[in-house]
């Protein structure tokens, strides 16, 4: 199974550990990636604030490139996935609109036929790789680890564009993967809420308040760690956690792992090779807990 790999800006920028860990993990589960080096940023919903149609044109170009490669797209970011899914939904449900977009693309010798399948790594794990292959790749089940899922809005809503109807596993994909890895799912109210990242520069207080609410809530439900398939959530939940804690006069100290980092742990990979040293909130305690469980 081969995919046109769309890494997204953040895995190539502020969260290099995400890129690093996914590169470690993917060969173990029988998939192959061909990185899309010429694809542009999805616009992350921000470009769309200024000019929604422009965003669709840029994404249609990416989809057209994948069509040329004859490959489905794999993303590793909830936001990339959501923005692309929405763009694709708009174009594939409205032929007139697609034609309008194609008229713009046409002058570049490009055309989007509307056939590209765009999926997040976590969906590919469940829908293509499958539970059996995944289980076989696990050499170090995460028994005893209590993991709180945190999806990122774009991987949860709007459900129509994300095709939840056709793919009943998608709404709870993260819980499913956590279970397969042998860890325990910690359910808490904030798992599909907003991390606050989009308003970090606009209203820092509210943004940090969201970070504090969700991390503290997960902790109070007994989570050892939180895992997210979205690097933007990671930037806020991990990167801003200390500051968010200060705002509440408390130290939260909940390690936030990228999904492939958690997978790598279950595959008994060296934490350093998964970029754990790049996480702000040290996952040291988690690693220790796992080590204790394993040795006992």
């Amino acid at each position: 199974m081969k995919y046109a790999f769309f890494p997204g800006c953040v895995s190539k920028g502020a969260c290099p550990e995400l890129y690093q860990s996914v590169m470690q993990v993917y060969p173990k589960i029988g998939i192959d990636l061909e990185e899309m080096t010429t694809a542009a940023c999805t616009g992350a919903g921000v470009l769309q604030e200024k000019d929604p149609r422009l965003g669709d044109v840029i994404n249609a170009r990416t989809f057209a490139l994948a069509e040329q490669q004859n490959l489905p797209i794999m993303t590793i970011c909830s936001t990339c996935q959501g923005v692309m899914s929405q763009a694709n939904h708009r174009m594939t449900t409205d032929g007139e609109y697609l034609a309008e977009i194609n008229q713009i693309l046409g002058e570049e010798g490009l055309a989007y036929r509307g056939t590209t399948n765009i999926r997040h790594f976590i969906w590919i794990l469940l829908e293509d790789v499958g539970e059996d292959v995944l289980r076989r790749a696990i050499t170090q089940p995460l028994t005893g680890l209590r993991a709180a899922p945190f999806y990122g809005c774009y991987l949860q809503r709007p459900t129509e564009a994300l095709q939840f109807d056709q793919h009943p596993d998608r709404p709870k994909a993260l819980e499913r993967v956590i279970e397969i890895l042998g860890a325990e799912v910690v359910d808490f109210p904030g798992k599909s809420r907003c991390c606050g990242f989009p308003i970090l520069t606009i209203n820092e207080k509210n943004s940090l308040n969201m970070v504090a609410t969700h991390t503290m809530n997960a902790k109070s439900h007994g989570a050892d760690i939180m895992v997210t398939p979205c690097p933007l959530c990671h930037l806020n939940l991990d990167g801003m956690q200390a500051k968010a804690g200060n705002q509440q006069n408390t130290a939260i100290d909940l390690p936030i792992l990228h999904l492939p980092q958690l997978l790598g742990l279950a595959m008994d990979m060296d934490p350093k090779s998964l970029g754990f040293n790049r996480n702000f909130v040290s996952p040291h305690s988690t690693l220790q807990k796992l080590a204790t469980v394993v040795s006992s």
């Binding site: 800006c9 953040v10 920028g13 502020a14 542009a40 940023c41 921000v46 200024k50």
Partner: peptide, 20 residues
């Protein structure tokens, strides 16, 4: 907020990828 959107758009336009 508005500068964020403007600058973001400008960066994508000139680089194709984001510079945080």
């Amino acid at each position: 907020g508005s500068r964020h959107a403007e600058v973001f758009t400008d960066i994508i336009k000139n680089k194709g990828i984001l510079d945080e």
